[in-house]
Design a protein around this nucleic acid. Structure first.
Lengths: 236, 236
DNA sequence: CGGCAATTTGATATCCATCAATCGGTGTGG
DNA sequence: CCACACCGATTGATGGATATCAAATTGCCG
């Protein structure tokens, strides 16, 4: 089953081979992998499960900056301490590598360094999409973008090549409503109501609190404003 | 006046020397430097003036992603076409360099490549602050952050070392209210009202539509939640 | 001085947040 | 097996912040 018929392989970046022989760590749901302020002496690569990267304000507010999936790299930092926190949403396994090892790898190999830079660019573009969403889109639009975002990662994680694959009809939402809310700049009640609105309009159907079935993908994409940008384009 | 007494030099990144012998281009206010979708075959470095980087949605919405100042690099892109637009706010001059030249410079010089990567990291961290603002902060908090952000760049651009320098008491706001609004995810009337609120609370005073005097820097910083993050920390 | 564009102010509408139940699963102990 | 307690999700009622629409004012440029 390999070769051209093989399902959409995850595009592994070359520099990720520093994790080849690395130790791994198992995480339970809710377990914290890195805390903001800690010395940033390790980097990670997710082997399985889902994690959540966020920032806390001093007054209890929290912004979820990203959900992280298989083969996502964790530990980007310009400084010597983390400026974000990461915790597991589901049970997860991560490969652990000393930052020093990665740095030596990048310093010694221009191809790896270029691949790393490209990854950082992709992260940057994705974040710019988030900025647009937070600044300009309404609650239901943000939720539509979010569902397509989860669908996108589910597709990559499961290595599904065909956009019409029936496995992509149901989207898993392992995180709680409050996590979604803090990702989208909303409150959990608003997330719930917006989801209900999408359902009332026939775009999706809630199967249970952690699964949604997509009923009308074209209209969902239209609502999300897919045609506009980089990352939404990838979502398509 | 050079030497240790010299005011806070702009930290020029080594890779910027590709602009040494580059051609320059003069821009009038409102003039467009790059349009989203164009082939990304040039990169720029700002020599003077202020520019604005933004994205347009197909329905007329716009998100200003960043204001750009002297020695800011313009043209980050993972792909071969720009995914944002840039236009001049004030009269401005930029140095222009073919992307190919920059790439060759980076490929041939690990030090330059590392400096470039560090710059991308700084951009990333700044954007994460913006994400937190858009997702979690109220209108007046965002405006407070914005004023400190403008103060920060004014300080760098003017090379002012002392945080208490009287020149930093008045902040220039060359852009229109609608530009500020699209940066902060608000409407221009809300920007105006939030500014009035800051004034009514004695934090600032509007001198004219394009200049604000800061009356109570500590309280402004407290409102902005300065203590929390990377970029606000730099604003202090 | 006149005219235009941007800013500011005012009145109202809308969306989202807040506060307060109720519902629904899940696990535990009887 | 059932009763209960707990926690997250959902729904409902209300409030508050921001958007929208409209008018007045200011500043700017000829």
């Amino acid at each position: 089953m390999l070769g051209p018929m093989a399902a959409l392989p995850l595009p592994k970046d070359v520099f990720l081979d520093v994790f080849r022989s690395a130790a791994t760590r198992e995480l339970a749901p809710g377990e914290v992998l890195v805390s903001a302020g800690q010395p940033a002496d390790q980097v990670f690569n997710i082997e399985s499960g889902m994690l959540m990267l966020y920032r806390n304000g001093s007054d209890g507010r929290r912004q979820v900056l990203s959900f992280l999936f298989r083969d996502n790299f964790v530990g980007l930092s310009a400084t010597d301490s983390y400026f974000f926190s990461v915790e597991a949403v589901t049970r997860a396994r991560v490969a652990v590598c000393p930052r020093r090892v990665l740095n030596e790898r990048l310093a010694g190999d221009p191809v790896a360094e270029r691949a790393f830079l490209n990854m950082v660019f992709r992260v940057l573009e994705d974040i710019l999409d988030i900025v647009y969403s937070l600044g300009q889109r309404t609650a239901s639009e943000r939720l539509a973008v979010f569902l397509l975002y989860m669908r996108h990662w589910q597709r990559l994680t499961d290595g599904i090549a065909d956009d019409a694959d029936p496995r992509l009809a149901t989207i898993a939402l392992p995180m709680g409503r409050a996590d979604v809310a803090d990702f989208l700049g909303l409150k959990k009640e608003t997330v719930i109501r917006s989801l209900r609105e999408l359902q009332d309009q026939g775009l999706v159907r809630r199967l249970d609190p952690h699964a949604v079935r997509i009923l009308d993908l074209p209209r969902l994409r239209a609502l999300a404003g897919i045609s506009d940008f980089a990352s939404p384009r990838r979502l398509g």
